[in-house]
Amino acid sequence: MGKRPLYKRVLLKISGEALMGQREYGLCSETVSRIAEDIRAVHELGVQVCVVVGGGNIYRGLAGAAKGMDRATGDYMGMLATVINSLAMQNAIEKIGVPTRVQSAIPMASVSEPYIRRRALRHMEKGRVVIFAAGTGNPFFTTDTAAALRASEMGCDALLKGTKVDGVYSADPVKVKDAERYRQLGYMEVLSRDLGVMDHSAISLARENRIPIIVFSITKPGSFAEAVCGEGLYTIVKDEG
């Protein structure tokens, strides 16, 4: 490959929607397998990888709350959806020969390990990919915040957010043709301009722990490895200067 990674340990945040492919709902097995290949490519660079997967392809707590459901109940349902996605991701990664562990913030002994920070670190040191399921384990927190929290706890060098677009734009690039893609932004700039990279608590956590956030397109094969090596199209959010 010839690429040199810029980071030793990274967390990949994938939205539930990214796993849908062209579907309107649920999981697309081809998409899950392709993302697994992308994770293997980074793993083969010698980078320690952990993953947080969203659950929006199955259930969104906030959307349920908008329709009259109790917000906490809706959020717990969303967390369970992330466990389904995490198990699918684990299966796809292990099928291509990469050892994987799922750790759930909501204990489910039959299907996953409980989240134990020191154990997760040990798994990564041994070359296993760790998938963190069930968000933070608490309602009212998004999986973006869970990603920033786990990246902080794991001492990650970067948090990579795989989305449907190749970075952060001044406006929705699907709707606005001449929307500008930013190459680099500061944490405070993202917060003050409400650019929607991640929610505010996730940005604040990353800022406090000086973890750069890299936004790239997970829909393009090989883009995860490119971003880890500082190549390809992406937006990086980090301290100014």
Rank of each mutant, 00 (worst) to 15 (best):
G2K: 11
V10C: 13
L12M: 12
K13I: 11
I14Q: 02
S15I: 04
G16L: 04
G21Y: 12
G21F: 12
R23E: 04
R23K: 15
R23M: 08
Y25T: 03
L27M: 07
C28T: 08
S29A: 14
T31K: 14
I35A: 05
E37P: 07
D38L: 00
A41R: 15
E44Y: 00
E44P: 02
Q48E: 15
V49I: 11
G54A: 14
G56D: 02
N57Q: 05
Y59D: 01
L62F: 11
G64N: 02
G64L: 01
K67L: 13
K67G: 10
K67Y: 13
G68P: 03
D70P: 08
R71T: 04
D75W: 00
Y76P: 07
L80W: 07
N85F: 10
N85Y: 09
S86Y: 13
L87W: 12
A88H: 11
M89H: 03
I93A: 00
I96D: 01
T100A: 01
T100F: 08
S104M: 02
S104P: 06
S104Q: 01
A105Y: 04
P107L: 06
A109W: 07
S110T: 12
S110K: 13
S112N: 03
S112E: 02
S112W: 01
Y115H: 10
L121I: 14
R122M: 12
R122V: 06
H123Y: 15
E125Q: 14
K126R: 15
K126D: 13
V129C: 07
V130L: 06
G135F: 10
G135R: 02
T136Y: 02
P139F: 00
F141G: 05
T142V: 05
A146Y: 08
A147I: 00
L149N: 03
R150M: 08
R150V: 01
A151V: 03
A151Y: 07
M154F: 14
C156A: 15
C156I: 08
L159Q: 01
K164V: 10
K164C: 05
G167Y: 03
Y169R: 03
A171I: 10
A171C: 07
P173D: 06
V174N: 13
V176C: 05
K177L: 12
A179P: 00
R181I: 04
Y187K: 11
M188D: 15
L195A: 03
V197S: 04
D199C: 06
H200Q: 10
H200M: 05
S201R: 09
L205A: 13
I211S: 02
P212Y: 07
V215I: 15
T219K: 15
P221L: 00
A225C: 08
A225D: 05
V228F: 09
G230P: 01
E231K: 13
T235F: 07
K238R: 15
D239W: 00
E240G: 08
G241A: 13
